[in-house]
Write a protein that binds this DNA or RNA. Structure first.
Length: 489
RNA sequence: GGCCCCAUCGUCUAGCGGUCUAGGACACCGCCCUCUCAAGGCGGCAACACGGGUUCAAGUCCCGUUGGGGCUGCCA
């Protein structure tokens, strides 16, 4: 619960500043979403800035993945790299660029020089990795002895200036106090001239006129360092809001070992972006009502930081599956078919669909609306519409009660089917008339029929199912079964 | 270790001192519907971590304990 939440007094400028060092993580996606919603809610600007200062780990592939992920979620940026070619500076939008942090190097270095000349930074010749037992850095005290150390071996460190505790005014956490004695001098420019994150984030946020920094709670502890740099450089300090992290089921920060953690993975599994966004928004946020379902537009209207939780949320696959199923049921048949086509690719070529095939597929998809949680289930669940069953196992035959009587029913039904028209209604009439004539229960013929035609015990209603399987395949499958299987006993 | 954050059903949460015999959602269980599986409807199980205060009154405020998480990098 955010206790000291105050509304922005002017249109906010917020940013999502990921580093392109891997795929778009769920936690990052939610951070992006909260920033985006906040900007939209208050009519502000949402800025995408790429923090590619770690040249070793940053890749263009990750950048692409990032951009694609955001687009898929429906999160558009007002300022930032161009979508088609994010590394092409000429395609950027916005007048606070460049939005690739690595390109802003000169301004970072200029700020570093300023800090140095102002006495806030000093050179350090300590080895990069402080091994265990390494003595504390004394470079600040012996700057004049560093003259003969080669430039490329010296880093620049920010000196924590003396003073009262640093207060972080956080929209979600309240006032958080850090004593300066607990803060350590830290590198702002690496040996070799590359500035570090905690430093450039300040310079860039300031020059991009960021009003609110909404980011993960993992950044809270570094915030006082950043505030000190803002102050040293006489820059305006933005308002901070640290949102809780997303945890895996074991209570630790969500990572690969908790299963699917990237936006791309959910995309490939057949989650709908609407459902994904809806779920993400509800992880740590509420509008105070019992409402669960929101479109992106509705979220833009409802979202503020006032009801963002301060405790971490555990990612729950069951719930996101429920959200997805909900959305699958709600979108139109036509829309659902279009989105399902990629998952039907092993059965039908999506590029050349004639009208009747499309109508047929729409009918099938419609039947499965209540039965799909994710679109990725399509190949395994709908295969029988395209291919004959590969065989029948004993236990299924037993469960469906395919006994001697059932064999007789199937023989007779096959004949009746051959003479019948093939609409759902005709099929139903044939079967219902048949059970009346034989004085048997519907179930006695439906289950054997279902198993033989589809190879499974669970399908939509049998009449529709047979209709969409088609007359010819239905008869063919019956013939195959009758020719190759014998009743038990 | 030091510093910081967090703590209501298994999970996400409502709750901002009295309206809480703690509400909703997911999951789970049962019933209904029913040709199977779903979907849907109805019902059920299930929580204020612990200990001290403050107060006429505490899930709600304060302190402590415990537990969890984060930061402590020439990663971001």
């Amino acid at each position: 619960m955010a206790f000291n939440y105050t509304e922005p007094t002017s249109p906010p400028r917020v940013r999502f500043a990921p580093s392109p060092t891997g795929d778009l993580h769920i936690g990052s996606a939610r951070t992006a979403l909260f920033n985006y919603l906040f900007a939209r809610h208050y009519g502000g600007s949402f800025i995408l800035r790429i923090e590619d200062t770690d040249k070793v780990r940053s890749t263009e592939k990750s950048l692409r993945n990032l951009v694609d992920g955001l687009k898929w979620l429906g999160i558009n940026w007002d300022e930032g790299p161009g979508e088609a070619n994010p590394t092409d500076l000429t395609s950027e939008t916005g007048d606070h660029g460049p939005y690739l942090q690595s390109i802003r190097r000169d301004s970072h270095l200029a700020a570093a020089d300023k800090l140095k000349s102002l006495g806030f930074a000093y050179e350090c010749a300590c080895p990069p990795v402080e091994t265990a037992g390494a003595s504390k850095c004394q470079c600040a005290l012996k700057q004049d002895e560093l003259g003969n150390v080669p430039e490329e071996l010296k880093s620049l460190k920010f000196k924590i200036p003396p003073g009262p505790p640093v207060m972080v005014h956080d929209l979600i956490r309240g006032e958080v106090m850090f004593r300066r004695d607990d803060l350590q001098d830290f590198v702002i420019v690496r040996a070799g001239g590359l500035p570090t994150y905690n430093f450039v984030v300040v310079v860039d946020d300031a020059s991009m006129e960021i009003s609110h920094v909404i980011r993960g709670e993992d950044h809270l502890s570094n915030t006082p360092k950043q505030i000190l740099i803002f102050e040293a450089l006489s820059l305006t300090i933005p308002i901070f809001a640290h949102i809780p992290l997303i945890h895996g089921s074991d209570g630790t920060r969500m990572s690969k070992r908790h299963g699917a953690v990237t936006v791309e993975a959910y995309m490939n599994e057949g989650f709908l972006p609407e459902a994904f966004v809806n779920y993400l928004s509800k992880l740590g946020w509420t509008d105070g009502t019992d409402r669960e379902i929101y479109t992106l537009k509705e979220l833009e209207e409802a979202f503020t930081l006032s009801h963002v939780s301060s405790s971490p949320a555990t990612f729950d696959r069951d719930k996101i599956l429920w959200f997805n199923g909900k959305y699958v049921r709600e979108i139109s048949d036509d829309d659902l078919l279009d989105r399902s086509l990629p998952f039907l690719a092993e059965f039908v070529d999506p590029v050349d669909l004639n009208e009747s095939t499309r109508a047929w597929l729409t009918g099938i998809i419609r039947m499965y609306k209540e039965r799909l949680e994710v679109l990725g289930e399509i190949p395994s669940k709908l295969g029988y519409f395209f291919n004959d069953p590969k065989g029948y196992d004993e236990s299924a035959l037993r469960k469906a009660k395919v006994d001697g009587d059932a064999f007789n029913y199937l023989v007779e039904l096959k004949k009746l089917f051959l003479e019948s028209e093939w609409t759902t209604g005709d099929i139903e009439t044939v079967i219902r008339d048949y059970i009346v004539k034989r004085e048997i229960k519907l179930k006695a013929v439906v289950q054997p029929l279902r198993l033989v035609i589809t190879g499974t015990l669970a399908t939509p209603g049998i009449f529709d199912t047979l209709f969409y399987v088609g007359k010819e395949p239905t008869v063919r499958r019956l013939e195959y079964f009758l020719a190759n299987y014998r009743p038990p006993g």
